[in-house]
Simulated scan of single mutants.
Amino acid sequence: MTDSYDNAQKLRSLTRRAVVYAINDNGAGQTVTVEAHAGCPRSDVPVHQPFGFSSHAPVRGALTHVIPLGGDEADLMALPPANPSTGHMGGLSEGESVLYDAVGQAVYLQNGRIIRVQAATEMTIEIGGEVVLDLTADLATLNVPLKVKGGIQASEDIVAGKISLQNHSHGGVQVGLARTGAPQA
């Protein structure tokens, strides 16, 4: 063999695709159990996670790439596992990003135009560990006081306490310019 062939083979061996058999996401860093060569599983391989993002791919069908650090096969590092069997959120335009999970929930950042969220059943927003907004397809629950600087439009009746905005009565009604009593339930 020639030196250039040997060098090319050495470069090719610096990274390889591996099947993921287990993901441990319980510690300070994520580790995986992988098999890059048939019959040679490796466990507790650290996963290189970029700052500010973490994921736990569904294990069934997951793949990763492993890199022997410094060319040392005893010192492997894995890239974040991917799972092509769960699909890819494609069809994005240039400059757009999406964060998604295995069931199709997604947060789309649509190139400065809109942030769109797709939730399967419920979406909550927490501040300081407390849920301040809880959204389902049937109900939005706001757990803090609401301050509105613009108008409020409603297609259905608004009820405050037991008093309907559309269907309430007033006491003390008099003819002329006199004022009525407060709305009654």
Score class of each variant (00 low, 15 high):
V45N: 01
G70T: 15
A78I: 15
E35S: 07
P80T: 06
M123Y: 09
Q174C: 04
Q49R: 02
T180D: 05
G150N: 13
A185P: 02
P50A: 11
G181Q: 08
Y21S: 02
R12S: 13
I152D: 02
A106C: 14
G150M: 14
A82L: 12
H65Q: 06
D157H: 11
L92I: 14
A62L: 08
V173M: 09
L139Y: 00
V117K: 02
K10R: 10
C40F: 13
L133P: 05
F51C: 10
V98M: 05
Q174G: 05
G70E: 06
L139W: 00
G39D: 05
R60A: 12
L135N: 12
S164C: 07
V131R: 14
R60D: 11
E96D: 03
I127L: 04
G151T: 15
S4N: 12
E122D: 11
V47F: 02
P46L: 12
A36W: 10
P58S: 04
D138A: 08
P81K: 09
E94S: 05
T2C: 06
L92P: 06
E94G: 06
S13F: 03
L133M: 10
P80H: 02
H37A: 14
D157F: 12
G161P: 13
A18H: 06
T64I: 09
A36Y: 11
L142F: 03
D3W: 06
A140Y: 02
L14F: 08
Q184N: 11
V20N: 01
L142E: 01
H56T: 00
I114V: 15
M77F: 03
P46G: 08
A74P: 03
S54K: 01
R113A: 15
G39S: 01
M77L: 14
Q153H: 04
K162Y: 15
G129S: 11
Q118F: 07
S97T: 10
Q105N: 12
E122R: 07
I127V: 11
N83K: 07
Q49S: 04
R179W: 00
Q9A: 12
P41I: 02
M1I: 07
A102G: 12
D6N: 14
D101G: 14
L133Y: 10
R116Y: 08
A38T: 12
L63H: 07
F53R: 05
Q49T: 00
A82H: 07
T136I: 04
P145N: 14
